[in-house]
Structure formats: structure tokens, C-alpha cells
């Protein structure tokens, strides 16, 4: 996999607590090629945000991150803080779920967008200003000359998310991690923001790791999808292949809990039960307690991630049985 832009292998992120370390991410491996869009999906608390913050190393000091995260062949986890900083906001950028709180209330929009440029590029004041205006135009903000002088509270949520995107795009990163970028926005604004992300991605040949719980967004945006459950990858593959032929009961469960507008209306089939707590993980397959097909082995041993077809992997004992036949 020499063409991988980002290659994460066996990422384990744990948090120190009173009763020892809690594994929020338990051995996740994934990779992204340049220019590719990958969706990382799962319920709240499945470790998808922790995975993204592990890449950027933005977790609090109580977190322990192990494994390897290679970006363009260099292991980010082996680097010292000042070296990691050269990647943040420069080669790898991130946008967050809450545009309302992710911008600093006491700094002008223009200054905030200029911050990554100040950190990573040597530009004159004039060039800086021009670049900021250009970025604001790129993300479709009207009156950029005025907006640079305004403060976040003067903008709507959708506009603020555009500002966040402009900030993330400032240094033309090779990878953009978008953590639930549209969750906090109105539906109409959501579509605009997704369109904008797609357009910017195509223009800059940027890889996009889209973290979401919204399978509709994945279907619309992504080439590949990675499904996480309780800190582990349970299924990954091309969006078409995974959506048409989900192998893991959890993936099928997620797909069944989307309301259908076409065809006969059926009752929604929610997944029973709740995500297990970090302190109390089942010893075998982590989905076993909620799985309608669970057998004895599911409760005792964890299945490995297995190829079911080209580029489509699943971690489930049912798939292993089929493969063994």
C-alpha cells in the first residue's frame, strides 16, 4: 500500500480513569489514498471522533495513543510535538461539528482564518489579507471584505461552518478530516456545505475523511465506507458494495434504521440495546449482546477482519463460516 496518503494500523487509544485505562479505540486500521473520500460511520461513542483526534494528536494528556499513524510514510505518533504541529492545519486540517463554539468569540474572522497561514506560510500582510479574501470567496461567503472584520457572533451557523472550512483550506491540506461537519446545521444548509466540500476536494485533489453517523451523507459523498462499533472496525468496503450487500449484522441494522421514502412503507427496525460501556466490554465480538444472529463463539472470541470480496472486509463469525466452507 505504497500509494496510501494516510495509513493507520492497529490504533489503540485509551483514557486513564480511576479504574485503569479505558479503550476508546481498540486496534483500528484504515487507510486513505490521495484524493479519496472515505466515510467513517458509527453510533455516538463508537470511537470515530477519538480516532480523528488521535490522528491530529489533539486529545488531552490523559489519553494514551498507541499503534502507528503514517502520513505520507512518516509516523506521526513517533514525532515530537513541534514536528506534529507542522502537519496540523497545514498538511492535515480538521473541521468540527459545532461551528457555534469552534470559532473564537473575541477574534475577528479574518484573523482566525489567517492563523494557519501565519503558522505555516511566510506571507506579507498584503498577501495574507488577499489570501483570506480569496478563501472566503472560495467557500461562498458574500462581502468577504466586510466579513473579515466581523466577529463569529455576527454570522449564522452555516456561515460559520463555511468560515471553518475556509480556515481548514487555508494551507491547501492533502487531507481534510471533517468530524460531523453538518450535524449541527439546518437540512438545506447541510446540502450546501456538502456540495462545497465536494467541490473543494475535487479542485485541490484532497483526501476527505468524513466522520458521520448519517448514512445518507456517506451514500452521497463517499467512495468507501468504514463502519465502527465500540472502538473496532466491523466492516469496510466500497459504498455500493457495503450498502447493497452488508455483511455485518450491525451494518444491516444501521441500514434498516433509515426510513425509506420509496416502495412500501415498513416499520423501522431499530437495533436493540445500547452500545456497551468502555469499562464493560464483552470479551468476544463486541456486537454479540445486541446481535440477532449471535452464536456461542461470538460471545467468547473476537472475529478477525476478513475479505468477503475485493476491497470489502467484515469482522463477523458468520462471514468466517461462509469463507470456511
Amino acid at each position: 500500500m505504497s500509494d496510501a496518503l494516510l495509513e493507520i494500523s492497529d490504533l489503540r487509544t485509551s483514557f486513564k480513569s480511576e479504574s485503569g485505562y479505558m479503550n476508546a479505540v481498540a486496534g483500528v486500521s484504515l487507510s486513505l489514498r490521495a484524493g479519496e473520500t472515505v466515510g467513517l460511520v458509527g453510533e455516538s461513542g463508537c470511537g470515530k471522533s477519538v480516532t480523528s483526534l488521535s490522528i491530529m494528536q489533539l486529545l488531552p494528556k490523559t489519553a494514551k495513543v498507541e499503534g502507528s499513524i503514517r502520513f505520507q510514510g512518516k509516523d506521526l505518533l513517533a514525532m515530537k510535538e513541534p514536528d506534529v504541529r507542522k502537519f496540523r492545519g497545514n498538511e492535515i486540517s480538521m473541521i468540527f461539528q459545532e461551528p457555534m463554539t469552534a470559532l473564537n468569540p473575541v477574534l475577528r474572522i479574518g484573523d482566525q482564518i489567517a492563523e494557519p497561514l501565519r503558522m505555516h506560510k511566510k506571507l506579507s500582510k498584503r498577501e495574507l489579507h488577499d489570501r483570506v479574501i480569496e478563501l472566503l470567496k472560495q467557500v461562498g461567503i458574500p462581502r468577504p471584505e466586510q466579513i473579515v472584520k466581523e466577529y463569529p457572533h455576527q454570522l449564522s451557523g452555516g456561515m460559520r461552518q463555511r468560515v471553518m472550512i475556509a480556515m481548514a483550506m487555508a494551507c491547501e491540506p492533502k487531507l481534510l478530516i471533517a468530524d460531523e461537519p453538518t450535524t449541527a446545521l439546518d437540512v438545506t444548509v447541510q446540502a450546501q456545505i456538502l456540495d462545497l466540500l465536494r467541490e473543494l476536494q475535487a479542485r485541490n485533489n484532497m483526501a476527505l475523511l468524513l466522520i458521520t453517523h448519517d448514512l445518507g451523507v456517506v451514500a452521497e459523498m463517499c467512495e468507501r465506507v468504514i463502519v465502527m462499533y465500540a472502538g473496532k472496525v466491523v466492516e469496510e468496503g466500497d459504498v455500493r458494495s457495503v450498502f447493497r450487500n452488508p455483511q455485518h449484522p450491525y451494518t444491516s441494522g444501521l441500514l434498516n434504521s433509515i426510513p425509506k421514502l420509496i416502495g412500501e412503507r415498513e416499520r423501522l427496525q431499530p437495533i436493540r440495546g445500547n452500545v456497551p460501556s468502555l469499562a464493560n466490554m464483552p470479551p468476544g465480538c463486541r456486537f454479540a449482546p445486541r446481535c440477532p444472529h449471535a452464536k456461542d463463539i461470538c460471545h467468547t472470541n473476537h472475529p478477525s477482519l476478513l475479505d468477503v470480496e475485493a476491497g470489502h472486509k467484515v469482522s463477523c463469525w458468520m462471514a468466517e463460516e461462509v469463507a470456511a466452507r
Binding site: 489533539l58 486540517s93 473564537n104 492563523e115 471553518m164
Partner: peptide, 9 residues
């Protein structure tokens, strides 16, 4: 967190 994500020391 945003500032840190921008590479601010």
C-alpha cells in the same frame, strides 16, 4: 482545540 488543530504552538 481549533487553534491547536491549526498548528498554533
Amino acid at each position: 482545540r481549533t487553534a491547536r488543530a491549526n498548528g498554533v504552538p
